[in-house]
């Protein structure tokens, strides 16, 4: 009696249980490895690089205006990530503003400031301190910084008229010349 039962139980386990179980375990392992692989790929990629199409974004400026990257086709976009708590950002703030003044009249270049993980009152103080006049806005939900996969601030992304990223500046620009050297060739085209 006992023997017979034991046999059926073993059969059941070898035939149905483990087979389903095996499929399930293999499937689970596969899913896990895929997730990890994709996660790894993401971390290994680093920021969006030159030559790639720039991610689309919508920036809501501090004065409530919505700037959609799609509306800016045909213009060079200088997208600067900064924060008021970021000391290295201050190194380049004045140069960026000067560059903006220089290109503003031509109308072919748009400067946009994305304020990363910052608080508005301090951001305003910072902008007044450096007399920043180009459109700036908070990175709502850190969406823009995540889509560009920035690693820190300051970082600046320069996008050409066709929406292709042409230059990535990690860390601050060190001089006005460095900024114009990247933008001028794009306008010459």
């Amino acid at each position: 009696m006992t023997e017979v039962e034991e046999k059926t139980v073993t059969e059941e386990e070898t035939n149905t249980g483990p087979k389903w179980g095996r499929m399930l375990v293999w499937g689970g392992l596969l899913v896990l490895l895929t997730i990890v692989a994709l996660g790894l790929k993401r971390t290994q990629e680093g920021p969006v690089g030159p030559g790639q199409e720039a991610p689309a974004f919508v920036l809501t400026t501090f004065d409530g205006q919505e700037i959609d990257s799609a509306d800016l086709a045909g213009k060079v976009i200088v997208l600067n990530f900064w924060a008021s708590w970021c000391k290295p950002c201050e190194q380049e703030a004045a140069d960026l503003e000067t560059a903006w003044q220089y290109y503003q009249e031509g109308g072919d270049v748009v400067f946009l400031g994305v304020d990363y993980v910052d608080t508005e009152p301090e951001a305003m103080v910072y902008m007044n301190k450096f007399n920043i006049s180009y459109p700036n806005g908070a990175d709502l939900g850190t969406r823009i910084s995540q889509s560009f996969r920035i690693r820190g601030v300051p970082e600046t992304y320069i996008i050409d008229q066709d929406g292709v990223l042409t230059h990535t500046q990690i860390g601050p620009f060190t001089s006005l010349l460095q900024i114009t050297a990247v933008i001028d060739p794009l306008l010459g085209q």
């Binding site: 924060a83 708590w85 000391k87 290295p88 950002c89 690693r151 820190g152 601030v153 300051p154």
Partner: peptide, 14 residues
Amino acid sequence: LTIRLALLVSIVFA
């Protein structure tokens, strides 16, 4: 190594 330099520096100063 790609340490998040900018962040680090600012954290530090701050």
